[in-house]
Amino acid sequence: MLQFDDISKHYPDSGDALSHVSFHVERGEMLFVTGHSGAGKSTLLRLTALIERPSRGNIFLNGRNLANMPDRKIPYFRRKIGLIFQDYRLLHDCSVFDNVALPLLISGFDARETARRSRAALGKVGLAGFEKRKPMSLSGGEQQRVGIARAIVTRPPLILADEPTGNLDPDLSIEIMQMFRQFNQRGVTFMIASHNAQLVSRFADRVVHLEKGRLVT
């Protein structure tokens, strides 16, 4: 489904975050990207979502070279992937419900369908009843789950998750991962950055390990 072909990313102020990374993600796979802090996991996910462009190399999604995607098509491309961020990226002046509903609003769903799906997604991450709360009034783990609900609400075929359980206690982490596994069994492909060794060993179909921006196998 996803293919990384000799990817390098160079930052002017910090050097090479990734160098010569090549691997692929199979459809329906739950792939984990591991590595120490600063290894380049987040960078890899950002490149995949076209939030940044690689300095070298190509990324193919279903055989299509993302480097050739013009900027104006990027929004439609992003609607087909679910993104979960290490720092959640929630809108703090909007309610939990509005945060989760935003991707549906952007994709042009009608109000009824939006409300139905948003409630369902919040229910799945265990936040039913939190609709009217503001993200600021939630714990780190609860905010993280709002971010997860927002990523799954459009039912994307590919989810890129950056430390999706970084702020959750072990039980909740396992619960979330089991939920991911359920989606995965229904055909959703996952690429998850994590340094939680326990989770990785328990849930990973395959692991890609990065060290200082290089792939180690």
Partner: peptide, 12 residues
């Protein structure tokens, strides 16, 4: 920040 998030979520 809001605009950046909206873009990341696929807003045109």
């Amino acid at each position: 920040p809001k605009i950046e998030i909206m873009k990341i979520l696929g807003a045109t």
